[in-house]
């Protein structure tokens, strides 16, 4: 119990640190950030329009007060969920844009994470159990080789071959224009069709870390004394592999889940952009491209919060799976 309470406290602390980081980043550079943003927005004009600067300042929550008051105000707007208005999607609010894109990324991310984890862990476990056999060599080498390929490059090739050339899948977007978003078959099947290529692009890379991690953990554990004792006990191979090998070897992988969530969300910027997928990654890309500062700040904040929540879930799961941390050790 202490473990879970402590983990939750750490989560709150990390969340606070992340929110504060998001507050600090725009203020890191010397000079007035609002003024600099305005300069960036109008690269051709030499003078800066003070009204524009004032407007940006309001949008960023950067009033002419001292930094502590700014910080308090920033926290207040966060609690109220007021993230301002997007420049590039005017007149939509940032909140509205996030609401539009979040579900797409959530579904794509969760599904690929789950499949990648399960497939990768299973392949890694099997490779370790049949260590140095042909399956192990092929899997380990294949995963290592695949890991060296740039993901954007693979995604582009998939897009070209499977969509442009062969026309198996749509070339981009989240669903076709004639489908009405909602719980209807036309929309769901269209959305599924559109998400296959992005998902495959992610899934080619997602299992690599799990495969190699699981294999190395399990190879070590299969040499450990308690696994040798399991053999001496005359247990079946299946039981040794699952309950003595894989059961313990999977723990570091579970601990790594949180990092993987960050990886998938980070990678979604590239993948969603290539496939014009209407998720948060693409939204962040566009915000960055268009210098839409309120939007990029908020999307980044959401990504961090998402990662931290995943971290919390992974830690809880770890606590459930490992009695050593659950029951103080």
């Amino acid at each position: 119990m202490i473990y879970f309470v402590r983990r939750f406290a750490v989560f709150l602390l990390t969340l606070w640190a992340a929110i504060t980081l998001n507050f600090i980043i725009p203020r890191l550079q010397p000079g007035d950030p609002a003024e600099r943003i305005v300069r960036r927005l109008n690269p051709n004009s030499r003078t800066v329009d003070p009204n524009q600067v004032e407007a940006v300042r309001k949008m960023l929550g950067l009033p002419d007060t001292n930094i502590f008051e700014q910080y308090l105000q920033y926290l207040q707007t966060l609690v109220r969920g007021e993230f301002g208005v997007s420049y590039s999607y005017f007149p939509f609010t940032v909140t509205h844009m996030i609401g539009q894109t979040l579900p797409w990324t959530l579904v794509l991310g969760a599904v690929t994470l789950f499949i990648g984890f399960v497939v990768g862990t299973l392949l890694g476990a099997w490779a370790a159990w049949r260590r140095n056999g042909p399956f192990d060599s092929v899997t380990t080498l294949g995963a290592t080789f695949l890991g060296t390929l740039p993901s954007f490059w693979i995604a582009l090739l998939l897009l070209y071959v499977c969509a442009f050339k062969w026309g198996w899948f749509p070339v981009g977007g989240g669903y076709s224009g004639d489908a009405q978003p909602g719980w209807n078959w036309a929309f769901i099947s269209s959305a599924f069709e559109h998400s296959v290529l992005p998902a495959v692009s992610i899934l080619l890379f997602a299992p690599i870390g799990w495969i190699l991690g699981m294999r190395n953990n399990m190879v070590t554990i299969l040499g450990d004394d308690y696994t040798r004792l399991a053999k001496a006990k005359g247990l079946s191979e299946r039981r040794i592999a699952l309950w003595y090998g894989a059961r313990v070897a999977v723990l570091p992988n579970v601990a790594g889940l949180a990092l993987a969530v960050g990886g998938i969300l980070g990678g979604s910027v590239v993948i969603e952009q290539i496939f014009s997928y209407p998720g948060m990654g693409r939204l962040l890309f566009e915000a960055l491209r268009d210098g839409d500062y309120p939007l990029m700040q908020t999307v980044f904040l959401f990504i961090i919060i998402g990662v931290l929540l995943a971290d919390l879930v992974a830690d809880f799961l770890y606590g459930v799976l490992d009695p050593r941390v659950r029951r103080g050790g």
Binding site: V10, L13, T14, L21, P33, G262, G266, V270, G291, M296
Partner: peptide, 21 residues
């Protein structure tokens, strides 16, 4: 604590965000 924080923050968006500023 800071190492763990830096570990979970997705790198690519962070780099992109920093380079935007």
């Amino acid at each position: 604590f800071f190492i763990n924080l830096a570990l979970v923050v997705p790198i690519l968006p962070l780099i992109a965000l920093l380079s935007a500023y």
